[in-house]
Design a protein around this nucleic acid. Structure first.
Lengths: 164, 164
DNA sequence: TTAGATGCAAATGGTTTGCATGCGT
DNA sequence: ACGCATGCAAACCATTTGCATCTAA
């Protein structure tokens, strides 16, 4: 029911593999994640570090909360889905991620926080970066008294002649 | 409980004002709406015509489902919120509206279906058209085998020095 | 007459929140 | 030790859906 129960489940598995052993491997150093979290003004807790390792392991990515949750489970990281949501929101607020909302259901989190446009493949529900920088040579000024806090460009594309 | 009950409520009011009397005034001719719906391949039912009149009455607008629902109520148009949602979706699919999603909660419907960017005023939850056409002189080509089905540019802006 | 439209309630589903417990500093 | 983090379930809430009823053609 509480946090303990999840640890108990893990504990049953740990009879052969103690708690402190690296049960998971994200391919990205915990040290750099800890530094990154500290620089962003966040306490580097275990969950945050592990999730950050998953997120920033292999270049830039587009991840949904559920995707990250599943990766965590596979990596034997005990974490609740709600915590994944909260952590992703916190990372976003801290500037480590950008939230992208291509459709009205799920939202994606982009590890590339620079302003850049996306292709959204409707049928496949996939996000792809558009590398063209030309698109931003003429960005608008914000209204007087305002500043741009975010800029989203989503080019929704679909297969031609989908044969309906 | 069923569709009847709502009609009964309306009927009670109609003892002094019969069904066919114009209890509402939207400021936009029903005839042009009917034409418009027909051209879009939709049957011009009463609810659709009335909602279209509200939508297209005064130039281009950004409307949420709830806003339109409230306008309908004020105009004495008996309509269910779910029908407003459905109708807005149908109009969008028919190309009469464009759906804009500045945040992850409500979505807006824009009566200007041409591709154009928006300012989104975060604190005020308001959408404003950006007239700059320059922004689109260098739009990207879709990926090979794909076509652009929608293009959303949302420039999220907030007050400078909001004094937190 | 009949396929499509509508009303309403209930379901849906991603996301957030409340609160008790756990953990970083 | 203190105060933030976390787990979990329950709340939340815009939107969709199911189904009976109605209506435009």
């Amino acid at each position: 029911m509480d946090g303990r129960s999840a640890n108990k489940v893990a504990g049953a598995r740990e009879t052969a593999q103690p708690e402190f052993a690296p049960r998971h491997w994200t391919g990205y150093s915990a040290k750099s994640c800890i530094r990154r979290l500290r620089e962003a003004g966040m306490r580097p807790t275990r969950r945050r570090v592990l999730l950050a390792q998953l997120l920033f392991a292999r270049g830039h990515r587009h991840v949904t909360a559920e995707m990250l949750f599943n990766e965590a489970i596979e990596a034997h990281i005990e974490v609740a889905l709600a915590t994944v949501y909260n952590t992703l929101s916190q990372f976003t607020q801290a500037g480590l991620l950008h939230r992208v909302m291509p459709n009205r259901s799920r939202s994606c989190f982009d590890t590339d926080t620079r302003i850049h446009p996306h292709f959204y493949l409707v049928g496949e529900d996939t996000l792809i970066d558009i590398p063209e920088k030309r698109l931003f040579e003429q960005m608008p000024e914000a209204l007087p008294g305002y500043e741009i806090s975010r800029l989203d460009i989503i080019v929704q594309i679909r297969r031609t002649r989908p044969d309906i």
